[in-house]
Simulated assay, not measured.
Amino acid sequence: MLKLTQRYLAVNFIAPFTMSLFFFVAFLLTFQLFRIIKIVISKGVEWSLVFELMGHIAISFIPMAVPLSCLFATIYTLNKLSDDSEIVAMRSFGMTKSKLFLPFLISALFIGACIYSLNNKVIPASKTQFKNTIIRLTSRGVLTDIKEGQFFTEVAGVTLFADTVIDKGRKMYNVFIQQEGKGNLLEQVVTAKEGALIKIKNEEWSIPSVRLHLTDGTIVKRFKDTNKDLEKILFKEYDFPLASGGAVNNFVTKDGMRTNAELRSEIKKATALAVKKKLSRKDRERSMAKTKLELWSRINTPLLCFVFILIGFSLGIKHGRGKSKNSSGRALFVLLGYYSLFFLGVSFARKGIVPAYVVVFAPTIILASIGAYFYKKLDWAS
């Protein structure tokens, strides 16, 4: 009877969890739809590719949506069972609190294992594929969007102008380029009599590296905080990198697009470099903060699923039919507290003030303590 009851509880949890997961992923996806629609309108993208993009970005939202789904699905399931007096019936034939929690615990372990596996390779691969496809579609317009007598500004930090454009940019005359600088370089201005777009494709991802081959021109660089304010260079031939995605070989730059092994490798390299440069502890933490936050967050997400299910279990059970504890309101309060503490810690971690693992795990430990308190306080006898 107990095994049958526990299977019944697990089955009742699956449907609300699936619906909650779909809702949260769809909600998060709406924030990316504007970007995708803009590309569809301006680049003439096929609808099959649009759905592929939406699929990749939806997969990347799963780690954020799963813990929330665990919390609200557990609360909904137990609220419904309490309202239908099924919890009372289970208690009447001697089902203990721990045995009632067991199917939810097993569900948490299964969900946690799945999300950890997805976070290892599948989700980074989806993020990489999404970014690669966006760059490929965006760069498709490099050959078509450059118009003569008009400023072209689709490449970040670069303004391009040409008096004459022939054959979709394969030949240009009287070219002017203004590029924002970094560090001591304020800006650089490139002028040339002639220019031609050169497109080199990466075979694996079909991501073009677009360069503008210029002839007979000058480069003027303007500096700050140096002995010389201007530097002028004359050139016969010069290749100006124009691709919005940067060099293909260095494409994967975001930590979310790396596997767990690659993240650990990056941390080791950064640690060795910090030791070599004799950086302080604060500077070391600041230089590796983003990578460490990504790695520890992937480990923390399965734990968070268990903690949220524990809190949902403690808040979801009612003391009787019709007696409401405003479970959803209390759950929202817990969520706001957790994420406020987490994002506050992230800001400290990026400044090197607090180690990344403390920022990631401390809110989860506090939340687990709150969940354990609610679980212990749950009056099972009355």
Score class of each variant (00 low, 15 high):
179 Q>W: 01
158 V>D: 01
261 A>P: 06
335 L>W: 00
353 I>L: 12
156 A>F: 08
204 E>A: 06
320 G>W: 11
195 G>H: 05
308 F>S: 04
195 G>D: 08
318 K>R: 08
31 F>N: 14
33 L>N: 09
41 I>K: 13
113 A>S: 13
243 A>V: 05
216 D>I: 08
185 L>F: 01
225 D>L: 08
243 A>Q: 10
22 F>S: 14
79 N>K: 12
111 I>H: 01
313 F>P: 00
197 L>C: 01
218 T>P: 00
320 G>Q: 12
243 A>W: 01
264 R>P: 00
357 Y>K: 05
32 Q>T: 14
262 E>F: 10
160 L>D: 00
151 F>V: 14
273 L>E: 15
257 M>P: 01
200 I>W: 00
112 G>S: 07
381 A>W: 02
36 I>D: 01
205 W>H: 03
113 A>G: 13
95 M>Y: 01
180 E>V: 10
55 G>M: 14
154 E>I: 09
380 W>I: 11
199 K>E: 01
378 L>W: 04
60 S>E: 08
359 V>F: 08
17 F>A: 11
1 M>F: 10
366 I>D: 02
206 S>T: 05
378 L>G: 06
93 F>D: 05
231 E>L: 12
149 G>N: 15
177 I>A: 03
15 A>G: 04
2 L>E: 06
241 P>S: 13
306 F>C: 09
312 G>L: 05
